[in-house]
Design a protein around this nucleic acid. Structure first.
Length: 731
RNA sequence: GCGCGAUUAGCUCAGUUGGUAGAGCAGCGCUUUUACACAGCGAAGGUCGCAGGUUCGAAUCCUGCAUCGCGCACCA
């Protein structure tokens, strides 16, 4: 027995060495596994992409949980003989990364405009590179058995080609178009954002009810009086008897120094019972009003600019921030005696997820993806839509899940997914930021050119905007496998991928967009199964965050307690899709467990020397009973891993190893091992050694380091544990 | 407003074909005995949110309610 077992288990002396041995052996790469004869080249494949972490800094406990879950599954599949591919990568994360770097240079007393586009981009790329290196190191520390030879980045050469190709094809099909509509403008980030990047925050506000001027016949209500200088109409319900006599009339007057011409229109969208039942229509600053104006062919007038400042009126309004303008207008309304009512209300204010800026709806010329336009399907991978048949992106996304070409787990998230599709509007994909994929469109006078490469000839200028980061991540399942080269071997072997494992918080951002992109470009699903995990929260169930100071740093935990303990702490106690509470005590507890296994190894190794596992001795009745109980443990573990109930599998192994195998079986065996009767001790030795080795295999996906290290000290080992076949029930 | 989830021991949570309630941590008592004190043994601790219903039997199924949390939509 190795002397190292005489002292407690030391992860710090084990993990780096073990990970390096795995890397050197090349077993993370399925091609090498075939070359070495570890995997049959006819073996079933299992593929998965790592949800690429943003290059915005360091990984948090949620990433650690994600890596642990995925690595358990990958190791399980590999031990079961499959050609197993897990692809690593990182995401440039466009707006998130850019705003992070903007904050950093702001502290240095400069900004992106002073630096200029080129110099600023160099700073961003440096930052991204540093983050990338940190992240890769963290993924390795967690023990991820991922194929580094296939690492990808959403903004590297290959992925850029995929993005431009995808854009061009969708543009040619008319699914991508440029149009002026109301956008979600983030004045803080100075960019448009998509509907999904909006977070509604409940805030107190005042609802004012007033008339534009004294003899205006109808009072309106609003929480944003400053936008009323952009009103072109008042909309009422067609059945509203109070106002029907005014419909069609135009009233002109002056509102806080701004001349207005208000048409009274009847529109079904107006609720009679809300406020006064009359809605002041501000087409340029409200999505709904824009739609009403379109229905009634009304003009629109922009009164607020990109910096959320007023661009009409006299000195009372012009150049003022919207908040100040609101105060000024309210004062004016009161002074004029126009105010009929003001009341406190709570309302949901739209804010930008990344910057916290209050969204200012503005009309702007932007690029969009049409989710309701027909295109010809490129493949047969979506049930109910055959190749060549016309379909819309909405239909593709719906059918992929409704017809169970994709299974979403836990199942309840299917409802969430369908609800999102039901409310889906055109996806705004252009961003006014610098970091990201430049839109592959060039302009020359009136000409517009969309291409994978820049047009030849002089005088072309490329569109200034970049793409929403989720455009490139939407391609991830196939851009990492060689697309747009349809002949690429990886693409043919590994797509659709088997599993997408990610957090439920990005089901719309990412999961849905991947289904959209794969459905359009390949005519198939990007993955067969979606498994959604929950959030890692603190001991009191609060979301971990730096500002709250309750965040647990996974690297620090790995240093203190080891990667195996850290992995178990985020697996056990977390059912599929439900959040997991984590305190340092929990991780410490699993550190003790790794040590327990270490000591079991010490006992087994020193008591079962010379045992021949290949020759099964005659077992006593009690031993047969123990073995059959253990077979049930194998079956239980196997079943629950396959059903993604890793918490149950992990907990069972913990409970069995500690409280059955160690506390009962080992204790009761001491007598037999001391026995003078060699038949008694031989059969008991065989049994203990057999169960222990099988337990190492079963636990390997959960705690790869300590199990591999012990396995390496077994006298009869033939190959590393990571590629040792998974236990089968046997009597 | 629509939808989803949670409510089990002091704390964090497990517990699916319905059959006498479980773990970890904390706390209590005992024990250094062929592994391990990062340990072992033992005791204690719960009317499984509330009210009904189905059933021989309900933490588990059904209905309603309450509280907390989340998502979506929307309030002009």
């Amino acid at each position: 027995m190795d002397d190292k077992f005489l002292t407690p288990y030391k992860p710090e002396e084990t993990e780096e060495k073990v990970y390096k041995a795995w890397l050197d052996s090349g077993v993370f790469n399925p091609d090498i596994c075939i070359q070495k004869g570890i995997t049959k080249n006819t073996a079933e494949t299992f593929s998965m992409v790592l949800p690429p972490p943003n290059v915005t800094g360091i990984l948090h406990m949620g990433h650690a949980a994600m890596i642990a879950i995925e690595d358990i599954i990958v190791r399980y599949e590999r031990m079961n003989g499959k050609r197993t591919l897990w692809i690593p990568g990182t995401d440039h994360a466009a707006i998130a990364t850019q705003s992070k770097v903007e904050k950093i240079i702001e502290k240095e007393g400069t900004n992106k405009h002073k630096l200029g586009r080129d110099a600023f981009m160099i700073r961003v790329e440096q930052f991204a590179q540093e983050s990338h290196d940190t992240i890769v190191n963290q993924i390795k520390k967690m023990g991820a058995s991922i194929d580094w030879s296939r690492e990808a980045f959403t903004l590297d050469e290959k992925r850029s080609l995929a993005v431009r190709t995808a854009f061009k094809r969708m543009y040619d099909d008319g699914l991508i178009y440029r149009s002026a509509r109301i956008v979600n403008w983030d004045p803080k980030g100075q960019t448009t954002i998509s509907d999904d990047e909006i977070v509604h925050e409940e805030r107190k506000a005042t609802m004012y009810t007033f008339r534009y001027w004294k003899d205006f016949p109808i009072a309106i209500s609003t929480t944003r009086p400053e936008t009323k200088v952009g009103d072109v109409a008042v909309a009422v319900h067609p059945d509203d008897a109070r106002y029907s006599k005014f419909v069609g009339q135009i009233f002109s007057g002056e509102f806080c120094g701004v001349p207005l011409h208000i048409t009274i229109v009847a529109d079904e969208s107006v609720e009679k019972d809300f406020g006064t039942g009359a809605l002041g229509v501000t087409p340029a600053h409200s999505q709904i009003d824009w739609e009403i104006a379109a229905r009634h062919k009304l003009s629109h007038k922009q009164v607020i600019n990109e910096y959320a400042k007023m661009i009409v009126g006299d000195e009372r309004l012009m150049g003022k921030k919207v908040g100040e303008a609101r105060t000024a207008i309210v004062e004016w309304i009161r002074a004029e005696g126009l105010m009929e009512k003001d009341e406190e209300v709570t309302q949901n204010v739209a804010t930008a997820e990344r910057t916290g800026g209050i969204i200012e709806p503005l009309p702007k010329l932007q690029w969009w993806i049409d989710v309701e336009k027909n295109f010809a399907m490129k493949g047969d991978g979506i049930p109910g839509i055959t190749k060549g048949q016309n379909a819309t992106l909405k239909e593709v996304m719906t059918k992929a899940v409704a017809a169970h070409a994709i299974t979403i787990l836990p199942e309840r998230f299917e409802k969430t997914y369908f609800q999102w599709i039901d409310n889906l509007r055109p996806w705004c994909i252009s961003r006014q930021i610098w970091y990201g994929h430049r839109i592959p469109v060039w302009y020359k006078d009136e000409e517009v050119y969309c291409g994978i490469e820049a047009p030849t000839g002089a005088g072309w200028t490329q569109d200034e905007d970049t793409l929403d980061t989720w455009f490139s991540s939407g391609l991830w399942s196939f851009s990492t496998l060689g697309w747009p080269n349809m002949e690429a071997k990886d693409l043919q072997d590994y797509h659709p991928t088997n599993l997408l494992e990610t957090g439920y918080d990005i089901i719309f951002f990412w999961v849905a967009r991947m289904i959209l992109m794969s459905g359009y470009h390949l005519g198939t699903v990007p993955f067969r199964t979606v498994y959604l995990h929950g959030l890692v929260r603190d001991a009191k169930g609060k979301k971990m965050s730096k500002s709250l100071g309750n965040a647990i740093d996974p690297l620090e935990m790995i240093e203190k307690y080891g990667a195996d303990a850290t992995r178990l702490s985020v697996i056990i106690g977390a059912g599929p899709g439900s959040d997991v509470s984590l305190a340092e005590d929990k991780i410490r507890g699993y550190k003790k467990y790794t040590n327990k296994i270490w000591n079991i190894a010490r006992f087994i190794l020193s008591n079962t020397e010379g045992v021949d596992l290949s020759t099964k001795p005659t077992l006593t009745a009690r031993e047969v009973e123990i073995l059959s109980e253990f077979n049930a443990v194998i079956a239980y573990t196997d079943l629950h891993i396959r059903e993604f109930k890793l918490h149950l599998a992990g907990e069972k192994l913990y409970d069995y190893t500690w409280h059955i195998f160690a506390d009962i079986i080992l204790e009761e065996s001491k007598e037999a091992l001391l026995s003078d009767d060699s038949a008694v001790s031989t059969s008991r030795k065989w049994l203990l050694r057999h169960i222990f080795e099988e337990l190492l295999k079963l636990q390997h996906p959960f705690m790869p380091f300590v199990t591999e290290e012990i396995w390496g000290s077994l006298p009869n080992r033939k190959q590393p544990l990571i590629i040792t076949p998974w236990p089968k029930q046997a009597i």
